[in-house]
Design a protein around this nucleic acid. Structure first.
Lengths: 234, 234
DNA sequence: TCCGCAATCTTTGTCGACAAAAAAAATACA
DNA sequence: TGTATTTTTTTTGTCGACAAAGATTGCGGA
């Protein structure tokens, strides 16, 4: 199809191919470079990466395990569609995880956790200043992931990471609703969260996590119902 | 190693092999028929199932994606160990999911959901009566999974299913603490939950879900600290 | 022209074989 | 006897090839 593959036929170390394909495809899917519903051809990928179908296949199996691609038996495999009907459920879960992870971080964090969190916050702040939407999504996810890590619950952590990953495509809409110019208020909110965590103020952490999450929900809701609203508000 | 494989060399339909191996291995791992840490040999499995290594490999990749097996690069793959240190975190997440799913079920269930839930409850009740620990674990999981399905949130549902699955090995300890003779009280608790869901009583559903979950945590705690207690109570 | 059927094409699922990597065994040397 | 090095063995990762299952195309008959 496209011929602009930068055909890197470099020698790879044994076992590195799968991760390479997996990471790249995952990013391309989540950044919407591969549009939902578009077909995925194994032989084409094999040619593009200069390897056999076997490692490609393994990467695809893993992506399917995360629900990022769907496999019709004996037939095509394609990038999964964004489940718009499931968005309320998604944001419900996201808000709950915001709350739980922030709350746990306030309880269980150590000094080095705060260092990591501050680094991520700095990167997020830089992305907002640079108006780089993709970077904002990624660094925001890493910020909250760092907070989740400080909460010391691997089960919440995995689930949260999964949500943040799977939601990158939805979150993209959210950032687009600001035309990629996120108000600096969000950077401040992160700062408040850090302060609450550092002070081990569980109640404040919970409240801020909830507010932070619900703000996103509201903005998305505003985006999705914008047309309706215009009708209603006559 | 063992030679007692009932070598079923039956003809399989194309594409069914992976699921077969995946399901069977998963069950064997979760029922502790394959002990944590034991090695997994691809060629041996291939011989046992009468198929090539390729579909075996795909099943293993999926199991690894769920964290049920661990893969040392270029070296052995083995059944993952049970993370005892992570048990508090596990049960924390489990209780929260009990609460959330029960609560949502009270809000969003439909009539056919209740039918399914009652069927699962009947099977759970039968398993308790028969003192079949493995069946109790499986049917209990299916009962709560049915409740989660009634809650209409796929994200919670997936996470909850994953927790219930991954925890089957831990839960086994829990049932062993009763020597596989679960008090009928648990069957009654399920009945109460059903009643609260049916009455759309969100508050009661939340409270019952929480109590149900915390009871399990207490029993596990009692099991794990039993020796210490004897020392302390002199 | 339209519908049913057969031939062809495309893409997946599976296989057997081989090479690389790590461990285990064997050998040489002090 | 103990240790370092080489050889063998074991097990994984990758490959190219082939067969099966749909989809597509082409053809013939009404």
């Amino acid at each position: 199809m496209t011929k602009d593959d930068s055909s890197q036929i470099t020698e790879r170390k044994r076992g590195s191919g799968v991760k390479l394909v997996y990471d790249l495809l995952r990013d391309e899917i989540l950044d919407l470079k591969l549009s939902p519903g578009s077909a995925i051809d194994e032989v084409q990928l094999a040619a593009r990466f200069g390897m056999s179908r076997t490692p490609i296949r393994e990467a695809l199996v893993r992506l399917a395990g995360e629900g990022l691609i769907e496999t019709l038996p004996n037939r095509s495999t394609m990038v999964s569609n964004i489940d718009f009907l499931g968005m309320p459920a998604y944001f419900d879960a996201l808000v709950l995880m915001y709350r739980v992870t922030t709350r746990l971080a306030a309880q269980h964090h150590t000094a080095d956790n705060l260092v990591v969190i501050r680094v991520q916050q700095a990167e997020f702040s830089a992305a907002v200043a640079a108006q780089d939407a993709l970077a904002m999504i990624a660094t925001n996810a890493e910020f909250h992931s760092a907070i989740a890590a400080a909460g010391r619950n691997a089960y919440y952590g995995n689930f949260f990471d999964r949500l943040l990953g799977e939601g990158r495509r939805m979150l993209r809409l959210y950032y687009q609703s600001y035309e990629d110019r996120l108000p600096p208020r969000y950077v401040d909110e992160h700062e408040e969260i850090i302060a609450a965590v550092e002070a081990r103020d569980v109640v404040a952490a919970d409240r801020l996590g909830k507010a932070h999450g619900e703000q996103i929900v509201e903005q998305i809701g505003r985006l999705l119902t914008r047309n309706d609203r215009i009708d209603i508000e006559l």
